[in-house]
């Protein structure tokens, strides 16, 4: 059964398919405190495992520099295997490009315009990780 946590800026759901879905609420820009709260909530739902994450940022209103750094820093990398960010606006495209090109997350990060493509990409990433883990054993 899917578990869910709602924070000030996101609704975070962890389903049976092993993928975390973060839906950005149409609130104001994410601050560092929001980023910390969201990463903490994700870790709580996944019980500390590194899992693929769909970030639905279609309602995103902005993000502070500190929050961008936190989302692309070691704390988030500890709970996120890869992020597929869904966008459908110029705001989303700008935020996504900043995250990719300026903040450079240490995990795979890609922009999508729909959830199906995002999901398919994350499944591929997860399979590659599983292969790597099997090879390592």
């Amino acid at each position: 059964m899917a578990k869910s946590i709602e924070t000030r800026t996101e609704v975070i759901t962890f389903g049976n398919d092993g993928i975390v879905r973060c839906k950005v609420k149409p609130t104001e820009a994410h601050t560092l405190a929001d980023a910390e709260e969201n990463v903490r909530a994700t870790a709580e739902l996944t019980e500390g495992r590194r899992l693929p994450l769909i970030l639905d940022a279609r309602k995103a209103k902005g993000i502070t520099r500190e929050a961008r750094e936190y989302y692309t820093g070691p704390a988030n990398a500890a709970v996120v295997m890869a992020t597929a960010m869904i966008i459908d606006s110029s705001v989303g495209k700008i935020i996504g490009n900043f995250l990719i090109r300026v903040n450079r997350p240490p995990f795979p990060f890609r922009l999508f315009s729909d959830e199906d493509s995002a999901y398919a990409w994350l499944v591929e990433i997860r399979a590659a990780h599983a292969d790597d883990a099997a090879g390592a054993r």
């Binding site: 820009a29 209103k61 902005g62 993000i63 502070t64 520099r65 961008r68 606006s89 110029s90 705001v91 495209k93 700008i94 935020i95 900043f98 300026v102």
Partner: peptide, 26 residues
């Protein structure tokens, strides 16, 4: 300033400029 309900492209410009300013300052 980013205005609620304002044109998406203009808000995108505002957000982009703000982020650029922050990065350049940093």
């Amino acid at each position: 300033t980013v205005y609620e309900g304002q044109d998406d492209a203009i808000n995108a410009l505002a957000i982009g400029l703000n982020m650029m300013g922050e990065e350049l300052a940093n």
